[in-house]
Computed example of a mutant assay.
Amino acid sequence: MSSAEIIITPVNDKKGRSAFVDLGRKFAAQTPHSVPQLKSEQMELINPDKNPFFGHAHVALFIAYSGGEAVGRISAHIDKLALELPEEQGFGPGTGMFGYFDAADEAVAQALLAHAEEALRKQRMTRVLGPISLSIWEEPGLLVKGADHPPMIMMGHHPEHYRAWIEAAGYAHEKSLFTYDLEVKHEFPPLIQRIVKSGHRNERIRIRPIDLKNWDEEVKTVLTILNDAWSSNWGFVPFTPDEIAYAGKKLKQIIHPEINMLAELDGEPVAFMMTLPDINHMLTKVKGKLLPFGWFHLLRWLKHPKGSGMRVPLMGVRKELHNSRVASQLAFMMISQIRKDAYEQFHSQRAEIGWILDDNKGMVAIADAINSKVNKEYAIFAKAL
Rank of each mutant, 00 (worst) to 15 (best):
R208W: 15
P209C: 14
I210H: 07
I210V: 15
I210A: 15
I210E: 15
D211I: 06
D211A: 14
D211R: 06
D211K: 10
D211S: 15
L212V: 14
L212N: 06
L212W: 05
L212P: 13
K213P: 10
K213T: 13
D216P: 06
D216V: 07
D216I: 04
D216F: 05
E217K: 13
E217V: 12
E217C: 08
E218K: 00
V219G: 00
V219L: 02
K220T: 10
K220D: 12
K220N: 08
T221E: 06
T221S: 09
T221Y: 02
V222E: 02
V222I: 15
V222A: 01
L223M: 13
L223R: 02
T224M: 08
T224P: 03
T224L: 01
I225L: 05
I225K: 04
L226V: 02
L226P: 01
L226S: 03
N227K: 04
N227G: 05
D228N: 13
D228I: 10
D228G: 09
A229N: 05
A229M: 06
A229P: 01
W230D: 11
S231Q: 15
S231P: 11
S232N: 15
S232Y: 14
S232M: 13
N233H: 14
N233G: 13
W234I: 13
W234P: 03
W234F: 15
W234A: 12
G235W: 05
G235Q: 13
G235H: 09
G235K: 13
F236L: 12
F236G: 07
V237K: 05
V237R: 06
V237W: 11
V237F: 10
P238M: 04
P238F: 03
P238L: 08
F239I: 07
F239H: 09
T240E: 01
T240S: 11
T240G: 12
T240L: 07
P241V: 04
P241E: 02
P241G: 12
P241W: 10
P241A: 12
D242E: 12
D242H: 11
D242S: 14
D242M: 12
E243C: 09
E243R: 14
E243F: 06
I244F: 04
I244W: 05
A245I: 10
A245L: 09
Y246I: 00
A247C: 09
A247F: 08
A247D: 02
G248N: 04
G248P: 10
G248T: 08
G248M: 05
G248H: 09
K249L: 03
K249G: 00
K250M: 03
K250T: 03
L251N: 04
L251W: 11
L251H: 05
L251G: 07
L251I: 13
L251P: 03
K252E: 01
K252M: 00
K252I: 00
K252W: 00
K252C: 00
Q253N: 08
Q253K: 12
Q253I: 13
Q253D: 01
I254A: 01
I255V: 13
I255H: 03
I255P: 08
H256E: 07
H256Q: 09
P257S: 11
E258Q: 14
E258K: 14
E258V: 09
I259E: 00
N260H: 03
M261N: 06
M261T: 12
M261G: 08
M261D: 03
L262V: 07
L262C: 02
L262H: 03
A263G: 14
A263H: 06
A263F: 05
A263L: 09
A263P: 00
